[in-house]
């Protein structure tokens, strides 16, 4: 191969297949409560939204890469038919198609990772993106488990992602600094703040979302490995004591005598 030809190949933008895992989480203003002896989250009257890390960073960055280089963005969700309306939002933002794995009961991270693994294996995706965590359970489990199940590398907490040819350059925020690394596709990557700007779907997107494919697939039926024994709410915040700015000595006295912090 001539030098020019190999140069061309390296820099040629690759048509990529992106899979973005999207989770539904309660709207951030939801009042949290539990049922069944505090073993289950109370779904009653909960407004569900796309997990912001999945939507704002993973999905939008996948769309940006697709728009720059060509490709196809599929979103995947594990859950019941009621999720379809929220999944449509991902299509309205710009995803090309959606897959919903029809799981109706409770499922832990392992069960969800196993279900997505089955879809991911057969789909031949170049990049599988997800948020760094969901804002309800904050587990950050899924990416690692999924990567292991489908035997791909996993890059976590990425704040920047660029692709040239088959190689991605990724920035990760690490304690006190940044780590820059490269990885060849395919891989699984979890996305954090900084990767993209949230997009608001436009009216055209909303209209076209109705006609984009939302394929429902039967679950593998992989069971959960964990079960919840109990949920607990954090203790209620105690009342705030206001101290006049003219009396700093009173603050010191309270911190010393009541809070016993100094």
């Amino acid at each position: 191969m001539s030098k020019l030809a190999s140069h061309f190949l390296i820099n040629k933008n690759k048509f990529m297949k992106f899979l973005v895992c999207i989770s539904l989480v309660p709207d951030t203003t939801t009042k949290i409560s539990f049922v069944d002896n505090d073993t289950k989250f109370n779904n009653d009257k909960v407004q569900w939204i796309l997990n912001p890390y999945d939507e704002w960073y993973a999905l939008v960055r996948a769309l940006e890469l697709k728009e720059a280089n060509g490709g196809n963005v599929t979103v995947v969700n594990v859950g019941p038919a009621e999720n379809d309306q929220v999944i449509r939002k991902a299509l309205a933002i710009g995803a090309d198609d959606a897959i919903r794995i029809d799981v109706t009961g409770d499922a832990d991270s392992f069960a969800i990772a196993s279900e997505i693994a089955a879809v991911a294996k057969s789909g031949g995706y170049d990049m599988i993106l997800l948020g760094k965590e969901t804002i309800n359970y904050n587990g950050s489990n899924l990416g690692g488990m999924l990567a292991e199940l489908i035997d791909l590398p996993f890059i976590s907490y990425a704040s920047k992602l660029d692709v040239a040819g088959n190689t991605a350059t990724i920035e990760r925020d690490i304690e006190g600094g940044k780590e820059v690394l490269t990885a060849d596709v395919p891989f699984v990557i979890s996305c954090a703040k900084g990767m993209a700007e949230a997009r608001i779907p436009n009216m055209k997107g909303i209209m076209s979302a109705k006609t984009k494919p939302l394929n429902v697939v039967a679950p593998q039926g992989v069971g959960s490995l964990t079960s919840v024994v109990k949920y607990e709410l954090p203790p209620a915040k105690s009342a705030c004591k206001m101290i006049s700015a003219d009396h700093p000595e009173e603050l010191i006295r309270l911190l010393h005598e009541e809070a016993k912090m100094i």
Binding site: Q85, R88, K89, A92, I206, M207
Partner: peptide, 18 residues
């Protein structure tokens, strides 16, 4: 309708920010 719900949400998101 589903469309109206999504439009309402979109406009709410926009209005909160902009």
């Amino acid at each position: 309708s589903e469309n109206q719900q999504m439009i309402a949400q979109t406009v709410r998101d926009f209005a909160e920010k902009h």
